[in-house]
Design a protein around this nucleic acid. Sequence first.
DNA 1: CGATTTTTTATCTTAAAGGATAAATTCGGT
DNA 2: ACCGAATTTATCCTTTAAGATAAAAAATCG
Lengths: 95, 95
Amino acid sequence: MTAHEGEKILEQTGAAIRRQRLAEGLGLKELARLSGLSISALSLIETGKRDPRLSTLDRIAKSLGTKVSTFFQDPAVDELKAGSTGSGYDLSEFE
Amino acid sequence: MTAHEGEKILEQTGAAIRRQRLAEGLGLKELARLSGLSISALSLIETGKRDPRLSTLDRIAKSLGTKVSTFFQDPAVDELKAGSTGSGYDLSEFE
DNA sequence: CGATTTTTTATCTTAAAGGATAAATTCGGT
DNA sequence: ACCGAATTTATCCTTTAAGATAAAAAATCG
């Protein structure tokens, strides 16, 4: 990461990971044990201060019993979950 | 990545990136110019031989006019879209 | 086929991820 | 406020992502 790039996505993804972890009532220590990552690495990732590798995100996701995709808040998924309108989901357009 | 971990997700994500790039009729050269990544880095990522950072995935996604989440084909979403039985995936973990 | 273009692979260098550890800070509970 | 637990931050070390470049291999086209 070169100073400012990817800032938002690091923070957003870190926050999503933290939400999921807390939702499962886990501490960093437990997640560290489950994922094999260090507590400090997890802390940095969750606070958006580190730029994790894809395999790292995958290890975290698997440890939390979820998939990497859930860390990227996808409005379409929320709509689907809510059993929404049912009308066409246009997944080909983004913002 | 330590030998075998995250193997599948690297290949799957790389393939998704390649699909999206080709769908837009771009070559590695063009995507390299758009994203600021080198052609070799993109080739390695698309063929699942490199473990990209989150910010790298984000740069690629933005260059392709999409979001990182689209690189993770979410079976749950596909099933929901198709209105399937949902056999196999537990969506309650997303509530 | 031969020539051009695209993609892959290799090598080298720099910067950053991630582990280990410890210290500092913050948060809860009593 | 105190104490203990959880989290953050810092330092040191090893590994690896990513840039640059070149060369090899594949695909595309005449």
